[in-house]
Amino acid sequence: WIARINAAVRAYGLNYSTFINGLKKAGIELDRKILADMAVRDPQAFEQVVNKVKEALQV
């Protein structure tokens, strides 16, 4: 799951650890299995999560 998430978030200019930190700051409580599945099956929803994380990180 970690490898999938890392590959997906790198397309948005983040790395895995920064993304996970941003999830916590944004108050998003999705587990890694769901995030990895979302990255593959629903990229639009995953992009929305990434955008919320970037807002929380102020990137």
Rank of each mutant, 00 (worst) to 15 (best):
I2N: 02
I2F: 12
I2K: 10
I2V: 07
A3Y: 04
A3E: 12
R4Y: 05
R4V: 15
I5H: 00
I5L: 13
I5M: 04
N6W: 04
N6K: 15
A7I: 11
A7C: 08
A7M: 10
A7V: 08
A7T: 12
A7Y: 07
A8Y: 06
A8E: 03
A8T: 03
A8F: 02
V9I: 09
V9F: 02
V9S: 02
V9G: 01
V9M: 04
V9L: 13
R10I: 07
R10G: 10
R10D: 05
R10S: 12
R10W: 05
R10V: 10
A11V: 11
A11H: 09
A11R: 11
A11L: 11
A11Q: 13
A11K: 14
Y12F: 12
Y12N: 02
G13Q: 05
G13I: 01
G13M: 03
G13N: 11
G13V: 01
L14F: 07
L14V: 03
N15Y: 06
N15M: 07
Y16V: 04
Y16W: 03
S17I: 14
S17E: 10
S17R: 15
S17W: 15
T18F: 03
T18V: 11
T18G: 07
T18R: 13
T18P: 02
T18C: 07
F19A: 01
F19V: 01
F19Q: 00
F19C: 01
F19W: 03
F19I: 01
F19E: 00
I20D: 09
I20N: 06
I20W: 10
I20C: 11
I20A: 11
I20F: 11
I20E: 06
I20H: 04
N21K: 11
N21I: 13
N21R: 14
N21F: 14
N21T: 13
G22I: 02
G22C: 03
G22A: 04
L23A: 05
L23I: 12
L23N: 00
L23S: 02
L23G: 02
K24T: 07
K24D: 10
K24W: 08
K25P: 05
K25W: 12
K25Q: 11
A26H: 02
A26L: 08
A26M: 07
A26F: 03
A26P: 01
G27A: 09
G27L: 06
G27N: 14
I28G: 05
E29L: 14
E29K: 14
E29S: 12
L30S: 07
L30Q: 11
L30V: 11
L30G: 07
L30N: 06
L30T: 14
D31Y: 08
D31I: 08
D31K: 15
D31Q: 11
R32D: 15
R32Q: 15
R32E: 15
R32L: 15
R32G: 15
K33F: 10
K33N: 07
K33S: 13
K33M: 14
I34Q: 06
I34L: 11
L35P: 00
A36P: 05
A36L: 14
A36H: 08
A36I: 09
A36Q: 02
A36C: 05
D37N: 14
D37V: 08
D37F: 13
D37H: 14
M38T: 05
M38D: 02
A39F: 07
A39N: 04
V40G: 13
V40D: 15
V40I: 11
V40Y: 15
R41C: 15
D42N: 10
D42I: 06
P43G: 04
P43Y: 05
P43L: 06
P43T: 06
P43S: 04
P43H: 07
P43M: 06
P43K: 06
Q44G: 09
Q44I: 14
Q44K: 14
A45L: 10
A45F: 07
A45T: 11
A45H: 08
A45N: 10
F46D: 00
E47F: 08
E47Y: 08
E47S: 09
E47N: 07
E47H: 06
E47M: 11
Q48P: 02
Q48K: 13
Q48F: 13
Q48D: 09
Q48Y: 09
Q48C: 09
V49H: 04
V49L: 11
V49I: 14
V49G: 01
V49F: 05
V49M: 09
V50K: 01
V50W: 01
V50Q: 01
V50I: 09
N51C: 06
N51T: 12
K52R: 14
K52I: 11
K52C: 08
K52P: 01
K52D: 09
V53I: 05
V53C: 08
V53L: 03
K54A: 05
K54H: 06
E55L: 11
E55S: 12
E55Q: 13
E55D: 12
E55I: 14
E55A: 13
A56L: 05
A56H: 08
A56I: 10
L57H: 05
L57F: 05
L57D: 04
L57N: 06
Q58N: 10
Q58T: 09
Q58W: 07
V59C: 09
V59Q: 14
V59S: 15
V59H: 11
